[in-house]
Deep mutational scan, measured.
Amino acid sequence: MSGNGNAAATAEENSPKMRVIRVGTRKSQLARIQTDSVVATLKASYPGLQFEIIAMSTTGDKILDTALSKIGEKSLFTKELEHALEKNEVDLVVHSLKDLPTVLPPGFTIGAICKRENPHDAVVFHPKFVGKTLETLPEKSVVGTSSLRRAAQLQRKFPHLEFRSIRGNLNTRLRKLDEQQEFSAIILATAGLQRMGWHNRVGQILHPEECMYAVGQGALGVEVRAKDQDILDLVGVLHDPETLLRCIAERAFLRHLEGGCSVPVAVHTAMKDGQLYLTGGVWSLDGSDSIQETMQATIHVPAQHEDGPEDDPQLVGITARNIPRGPQLAAQNLGISLANLLLSKGAKNILDVARQLNDAH
C-alpha cells in the first residue's frame, strides 16, 4: 500500500501541473516587456503551470559599433537563445518575429505568432524639431536608422535628408537623439515604442507609400524545439490566425527572394473581405531603383483552434497545428507568387547589386 502511495506522490510531482516552463529572452527592456506579455497570456491559459524567465545577451546586443547589415552573420539576435533551447536550458524563446530568419536551424520551429501590433515605422524627432515631419525637416538634416530597408525607401522619398546608421537598443538610440546634436530624427518601429509606453515620442507614423515595413514587423514569434510536442501544444494558444497568415505570406515572399538583413526588402499586408493583399518591394541601397507589386488571394481566416493538420510540417519556419492547413498554404503560395513576379521584373539584379555594395563598404 505504502509503495503505491509513493508512486502516486511521484506521479503528482512529475505531472504537468508541477512543471516549471523556462522562457528565454534577450536582456533589453523591450525584450523583457514583450516576454512578460507572452508569459502573462500563458499564465492565464495555464494557471497550474509556473513560468521562469531567463534573460541573456546576444551577438546583436554586444556589437554596437557596426551596422547590422555589415556584421555579416545571420541570427544576430537569436543564436545564443537557440543555443540555450538546444541544450534544454529553456523550453521556449520569445523573439520579435522580424529577427527570426525565414529558414531556422534544424530542430527549431516557430510554435506561435502572437497578435500583431502596429507594424509601421515611426519617426521620433529631436526636441528642437518636435512638430515637424520628415518632409518639413531642414535641408541636409541627419536621420538615424539601423535599417537598409528604411534608408533606401526614405532616401527616395525625401532626397533633402541624409540617413546615417544608429545602433543600440531603444533606450540607447533615444538617448543619442536627445543628448547629442548629430541626429534631427530617428526611425523606429511603432510597436516597440508603444510597448515601452513611449507613445508621446511618436512624431509621425510612416504610411506604406512612404515606407513599407519589415517582414514580420510588429509581431512576436515564440520559438521552440520542433519535436517538443508538449510545448508546441502549450504555445499553440498564442497563435493569432490573421497575423499568422499575413506573416506566412510575408516570410514566403522574403524567403523566395532570398532577402535578408543586408538587402532592402519591404512588405505591406492587409486582410479585407476574405482577401489577403500582399505588397512587396525591393530597392537599391540608395533607393534610386525599385520594383513594387501587389497581389491578392482569397483566404478564409479560420477561428482559433479549428482542428489543424496533425502532421505539422513547417511552413517558412512556422508550425501551427491548430490552424487549418489550406489557408496557410494559400498564404505561402501568395508570397511565392509575388516573389516570382518581382524576380521576373529584375528584382534579383537589384538585390545582387545591393548585396555587393553593402559587402564592399
Rank of each mutant, 00 (worst) to 15 (best):
S37T: 14
V38F: 05
V39L: 09
A40V: 12
A40F: 07
A40C: 15
L42M: 08
A44H: 09
A44S: 11
S45K: 15
Y46W: 13
Y46T: 10
P47V: 12
P47W: 05
G48V: 10
G48P: 05
L49V: 12
L49T: 13
E52P: 07
E52H: 04
I53V: 11
I53N: 07
I54R: 08
I54S: 07
I54C: 03
A55C: 08
M56R: 09
M56D: 14
S57T: 06
T59F: 15
G60H: 03
G60S: 01
D61H: 02
K62P: 03
I63L: 13
L64S: 07
D65Y: 10
T66I: 14
T66Y: 06
T66G: 12
L68E: 08
L68G: 06
S69F: 08
S69I: 11
I71F: 10
E73T: 14
E73G: 06
E73A: 09
K74V: 04
S75E: 05
L76N: 11
L76D: 12
L76C: 14
F77Q: 04
T78D: 05
K79P: 09
K79Q: 10
E80D: 14
E80V: 07
E80G: 08
E80P: 08
L81S: 03
H83G: 10
H83S: 12
H83F: 11
K87V: 06
N88G: 09
E89I: 13
E89F: 13
V90L: 12
V90F: 05
L92K: 03
V93A: 11
V94G: 04
H95M: 05
H95Y: 03
S96K: 01
D99K: 02
D99M: 04
D99S: 02
D99G: 05
L100Y: 12
L100T: 07
L100H: 01
V103H: 00
V103Y: 00
V103R: 11
V103K: 13
L104H: 10
L104Q: 08
P105H: 10
P106M: 06
P106Y: 07
G107Q: 13
G107F: 13
G107I: 01
G107E: 10
F108S: 05
T109L: 05
T109S: 10
T109N: 07
I110W: 02
I110T: 05
I110S: 01
I110N: 05
G111R: 03
G111A: 05
A112W: 01
C114W: 08
C114E: 02
K115W: 05
R116S: 07
E117G: 11
E117H: 11
E117K: 12
N118S: 14
N118I: 13
N118V: 12
P119D: 04
P119L: 03
H120V: 08
H120D: 10
D121I: 02
D121T: 02
D121S: 04
A122G: 10
A122F: 03
V123G: 07
V123W: 01
V123L: 11
V124F: 07
V124I: 11
V124A: 12
F125K: 02
H126C: 13
H126W: 05
P127Y: 00
F129N: 01
V130M: 09
V130T: 09
G131S: 11
G131A: 12
K132Q: 14
K132S: 12
K132N: 15
T133C: 12
T133G: 06
L134A: 08
E135V: 14
E135N: 08
T136L: 09
T136K: 13
T136R: 11
P138F: 08
K140N: 11
S141L: 10
S141H: 11
S141I: 05
V143K: 04
V143M: 10
T145P: 01
T145D: 02
S146Q: 14
S146M: 06
S147A: 00
L148N: 00
R149F: 07
R150M: 06
A151H: 12
A151T: 09
A151D: 12
A151G: 11
A151C: 10
A152Y: 09
A152G: 09
A152L: 12
Q153A: 02
Q155P: 09
Q155R: 11
R156N: 12
R156Q: 12
K157T: 07
P159K: 10
H160Q: 13
L161S: 07
L161H: 11
L161V: 07
E162C: 15
R167Q: 09
N169K: 11
N169F: 06
N171T: 11
T172K: 09
T172I: 08
R173G: 02
K176H: 08
K176T: 10
L177P: 01
D178L: 11
D178E: 11
D178C: 14
Q181C: 03
A185D: 07
A185V: 10
I187H: 01
I187S: 07
I187A: 08
A189W: 00
A189F: 03
A191Y: 04
L193I: 05
L193D: 03
Q194A: 13
R195D: 00
M196G: 09
M196A: 12
M196Q: 15
G197A: 04
G197K: 04
N200Y: 10
V202Y: 08
V202F: 01
G203E: 05
I205Q: 15
I205C: 13
L206K: 02
H207Y: 14
P208V: 06
E209I: 04
E209F: 15
E210N: 12
A214G: 08
V215M: 10
G216S: 12
Q217Y: 03
Q217W: 02
Q217D: 00
A219T: 07
A219N: 00
G221R: 01
G221F: 03
V222D: 02
V222L: 14
V222M: 09
E223G: 08
E223C: 15
E223Y: 03
E223F: 02
V224C: 14
R225L: 09
R225M: 12
K227Q: 09
K227C: 01
D228L: 04
D228W: 01
D228Q: 15
Q229I: 05
Q229K: 08
Q229V: 06
D230S: 14
I231D: 13
I231G: 07
G236E: 00
L238C: 04
H239E: 05
H239F: 01
H239W: 00
D240I: 06
D240A: 08
E242D: 13
T243P: 05
L245K: 04
R246C: 05
R246I: 06
C247N: 06
A249H: 01
E250G: 02
R251K: 12
H256N: 04
L257R: 09
E258I: 13
E258F: 06
C261E: 03
C261S: 02
S262G: 15
V263Q: 15
P264A: 04
T269G: 02
T269Y: 01
A270N: 03
M271V: 08
K272R: 10
K272E: 08
Q275P: 07
L276R: 02
L276E: 03
Y277E: 04
L278R: 03
L278S: 07
L278E: 02
V282N: 04
W283C: 07
S284G: 12
L285Y: 15
L285M: 13
D286Q: 11
D286K: 05
G287V: 15
G287P: 03
S288D: 14
D289S: 08
D289Y: 11
D289A: 13
D289Q: 15
S290G: 12
S290T: 02
S290I: 15
I291S: 07
Q292W: 07
E293S: 12
E293T: 04
M295I: 14
M295R: 14
Q296P: 07
A297N: 00
A297Y: 04
A297G: 10
H300G: 12
H300Q: 10
V301L: 00
P302D: 12
A303L: 15
Q304I: 03
Q304L: 05
H305G: 14
H305F: 01
H305S: 06
E306M: 04
D307I: 01
G308P: 06
G308T: 08
P309W: 06
P309T: 10
P309K: 14
E310D: 06
D311P: 09
D311E: 14
D311M: 14
D312M: 08
Q314T: 10
Q314M: 00
L315F: 15
L315V: 03
V316I: 10
V316F: 13
G317E: 00
G317P: 11
I318F: 15
A320C: 07
A320T: 12
A320Q: 03
A320M: 04
A320I: 01
R321H: 11
N322K: 10
N322A: 00
N322L: 06
I323G: 04
R325V: 03
Q328R: 03
Q328E: 13
L329F: 11
A330F: 07
Q332M: 15
Q332S: 15
N333C: 02
L334S: 06
L334N: 15
L334K: 02
G335E: 03
I336R: 15
L338Q: 04
A339C: 02
L342Q: 08
K345L: 10
K348I: 15
K348W: 13
N349M: 12
V353D: 14
R355Q: 14
R355A: 04
